[in-house]
C-alpha cells in the first residue's frame, strides 16, 4: 500500500468512529443539557415521578431476586449435565432475548392472562397478574432472566472442572461444592449476568405495557411514566430519563469494574 492510500484509510476509519460516537453520545448528553439540573430535580419531586421510581426499584429488585434464586441453580444444571436436547433447551431459554417486547407481552397474556391457558388456574388460586404489580414482576422476569441465565451458564462452564472434582474427593457433596466452590469462583460472571438482567429489567417497556398496563403507583414503572408524560410535560419526561440513564451508566460501569478494575483504562492489546 502506498503512503497516500494508507493515510486515506486512516482518515476514513477515524471519521467513521467520530460519526458513530457523536450519534451515540449526543442524544444522551441532550437529556442532561436540554433542561437545567434544577428543573430536572424539581420535576422529580412530583408524586407520579416518585411513584414510578419507587415502583421501578421495587419490581426490578424482586424480579432480580427471583432471577438469581431460580436462575443460578438452573444455569448450573445446564452447565454441568450432559443430556439429549441440551442445546435445544439452551436455545429455548435464550429465545426471549430476541423476542420483540410487544410479542412478549402478548405471549404472557396468552399464557397467564384472564383468558390465557393458565388463567383459570391462577384465578382459582386468587392470583391476578394483569393490571397488578405482580404482573410487572412477571414481565420483568420473563424478559430479563435470559440475560442472567446465559451469562451464568457460561460462567459455570468456565470453572476448571478439576477443582470441582477436587472438592468432591475432599469430602464435599455436590450441593456443598456448588455453594462453596462453584458460586464463589463463578461470582464475577454471575454478577455481570445480574447487572445485565438488572439493566434490561429497569428499561423494560413493551411487555410491561401489554401485560400489566400503566396504572400509576401499581404498574407504571419509570419507562412507562416517561412515555405517559412526554406529550404533556417534556421536561418531566427528560428528568425521569436522566435518572434511568444515570442508573444504567452506573450498572455498565459496575460490570466493567467486575471484569477487572483496570478494564476501563488499560490499552487494548
Amino acid at each position: 500500500m502506498s503512503a497516500l492510500s494508507r493515510l486515506w484509510f486512516s482518515l476514513a476509519v477515524t471519521i467513521a468512529l467520530a460519526v458513530a460516537l457523536t450519534f451515540l453520545i449526543l442524544p444522551i448528553l441532550a437529556i442532561f443539557l436540554d433542561t437545567g439540573p434544577a428543573a430536572l430535580i424539581d420535576s422529580l419531586g412530583e408524586e407520579t415521578a416518585r411513584d414510578a421510581l419507587l415502583l421501578s426499584l421495587e419490581t426490578t429488585a424482586i424480579a432480580l431476586a427471583i432471577i438469581i434464586v431460580v436462575g443460578t441453580p438452573a444455569a448450573y444444571f445446564l452447565a454441568s449435565r450432559r443430556f439429549r436436547g441440551r442445546a435445544l433447551l439452551t436455545t429455548l431459554i435464550e429465545l426471549p432475548l430476541v423476542l420483540p417486547p410487544a410479542a412478549a407481552g402478548i405471549a404472557l397474556l396468552a399464557a397467564l392472562g384472564p383468558n390465557g391457558i393458565f388463567g383459570a388456574e391462577l384465578d382459582a388460586l386468587g392470583i391476578t397478574l394483569p393490571l397488578e404489580t405482580a404482573g410487572v414482576v412477571v414481565a420483568l422476569v420473563f424478559v430479563a432472566s435470559p440475560f442472567y441465565l446465559r451469562q451464568a451458564q457460561a460462567s459455570f462452564a468456565a470453572v476448571d472442572p478439576t477443582i470441582v472434582d477436587a472438592s468432591r474427593t475432599l469430602g464435599a457433596s455436590e450441593a456443598h461444592t456448588f455453594a462453596r466452590i462453584l458460586v464463589p469462583t463463578a461470582l464475577p460472571g454471575l454478577a455481570t449476568g445480574g447487572a445485565l438482567a438488572l439493566g434490561r429489567a429497569l428499561g423494560e417497556f413493551g411487555a410491561t405495557l401489554m401485560f400489566a398496563g400503566a396504572l400509576q403507583g401499581v404498574t407504571q414503572t419509570v419507562p412507562l411514566a416517561i412515555f405517559d408524560r412526554f406529550a404533556r410535560d417534556f421536561d418531566a419526561a427528560l428528568a425521569l430519563s436522566a435518572v434511568l440513564v444515570a442508573i444504567s451508566a452506573a450498572i455498565l460501569l459496575a460490570t466493567k469494574l467486575l471484569d477487572g478494575p483496570d478494564s476501563l483504562t488499560r490499552a487494548a492489546r
Binding site: 478439576t162 477443582i163 477436587a166 472438592s167 474427593t169 469430602g171 469462583t185
Partner: peptide, 20 residues
C-alpha cells in the same frame, strides 16, 4: 459410593487448588 464417601487423597496433575 459418591466421591465424598470414598476417603481418597487425590493429588491432581495441575494441583486443582481453589483459586478463591
Amino acid at each position: 459410593f459418591a466421591p465424598e464417601r470414598r476417603r481418597c487423597g487425590y493429588l491432581f496433575q495441575e494441583y486443582a487448588l481453589f483459586p478463591h
